[in-house]
């Protein structure tokens, strides 16, 4: 299978998934108590207002017609209006999504840069005391609720030892995010911590599996040293399954962003979502769910493409 055929197939799968997501979101919208009218007009709407809204918006039409109308709106980039902010939701998201992306991408990059070498090193030093310590720390970081972790970091590094501010930069534009880099440290560290824990474990077990593979024995028989074999052969082979897991970790990253942005008051999509939940602003809530899901699907696609770059067997359909 050539590259383009493989990409096409993955793209089609991604589109199918996005379709299903729109159905889910649509379903949620219509399963709200009081229907979407209440969702959009708010809890205070009177029965009359709801009736008027329903007939205006065509909510009396059959469900599948409404679904296609909904899809039509989506394709035009219309996610509706937020009644708390009184702005187009699309506009709100366009403002805030990039900031969330900056946060999550930075978290992911830093986490991977630390986790991958750490995992490999742990595998090489298996059952050494240091391996146990690193494993234990990983377990703890992985088992702690993100907000608890963030809180502990704030207490230690912001209050007890005032090193970093506990509030993230709050400007409106994307550039303002970088105005005070120190303010980004704690949010990123909180998000990266559990990702480092998870991916170092993956890398460790993947490396361990690869160390007992035949090709390692062949390389040793050719006179290669342990370090050389690790770097040149084991590393890339161990990386493949880990990259595959990246795709599935993207929603976890976004979920974490929700909590982190709330904790550190970072003006991204997570905070938007949080505030909308507090005020039951359903259009915003569902619009965000849709966008985040699409972002996740795109992220998974990117991870898959990355995998096919590292591993040429993926395109040929044999792994």
């Amino acid at each position: 299978m050539t590259t383009s055929l493989y990409l096409l197939r993955r793209l089609l799968q991604a589109v199918a998934v996005i379709f299903i997501v729109t159905v889910v979101v649509f379903g949620l919208l219509h399963s709200l108590p009081g229907g979407p009218a209440r969702g959009i007009l708010g809890a205070q709407a009177t029965a009359q207002q709801i009736e008027q809204f329903n007939s205006e918006q065509g909510l009396t039409k059959p469900l599948y017609v409404q679904y296609f109308l909904y899809l039509g709106h989506l394709l035009h980039g219309d996610l509706g209006i937020s009644y708390t902010y009184n702005e187009s939701i699309t506009q709100l998201i366009v403002e805030r999504l990039p900031k969330t992306l900056v946060l999550t991408i930075l978290q992911a990059v830093i986490a991977l840069v630390i986790a991958i070498p750490l995992g490999m090193w742990q595998a090489a030093k298996r059952n050494h005391p240091v391996d146990y310590i690193a494993t234990t720390v990983s377990f703890v970081a992985y088992s702690a609720p993100v907000f608890f972790l963030g809180l502990v970091l704030i207490i230690v590094f912001s209050q007890t030892i005032p090193l970093f501010p506990s509030q993230a930069p709050n400007g409106a534009t994307l550039a303002s995010v970088f105005a005070n880099p120190a303010a980004l440290v704690l949010p990123i560290a909180t998000g990266a911590a559990s990702m480092i824990a998870v991916f170092s474990r993956y890398m460790r077990s993947s490396t361990l599996e690869n160390l007992s593979e035949d090709y390692v024995r062949t390389a040793r028989a050719g006179g290669g040293s342990g370090g050389q074999i690790l770097r040149r052969h084991v590393f890339r082979n161990s990386l493949t399954p880990v990259v595959a897991m990246l795709g599935y970790y993207v929603p976890v990253l976004f979920g974490g962003a929700l909590v982190i942005e709330q904790l550190f008051n970072y003006p991204g999509m997570g905070l938007l979502f949080w505030n909308a939940a507090q005020s039951s602003d359903f259009p915003v809530l569902l619009g965000c769910v849709l966008v985040i899901s699409v972002a996740t699907v795109v992220g998974t696609l990117i991870a898959d493409i990355l995998q096919s770059v590292i591993d040429p067997r993926v395109k040929a359909g044999r792994t």
Binding site: R217, A221, G223, R232, R313
Partner: peptide, 24 residues
């Protein structure tokens, strides 16, 4: 041993399919 393997003495194994690094 490293000096010896691959120059003085070499080895060929049973399973050719898995004997080579699949990504190199």
């Amino acid at each position: 041993l490293r000096h010896l393997r691959g120059s003085t003495a070499s080895m060929v194994f049973q399973e050719p399919g898995t004997a080579l690094d699949p990504l190199t």
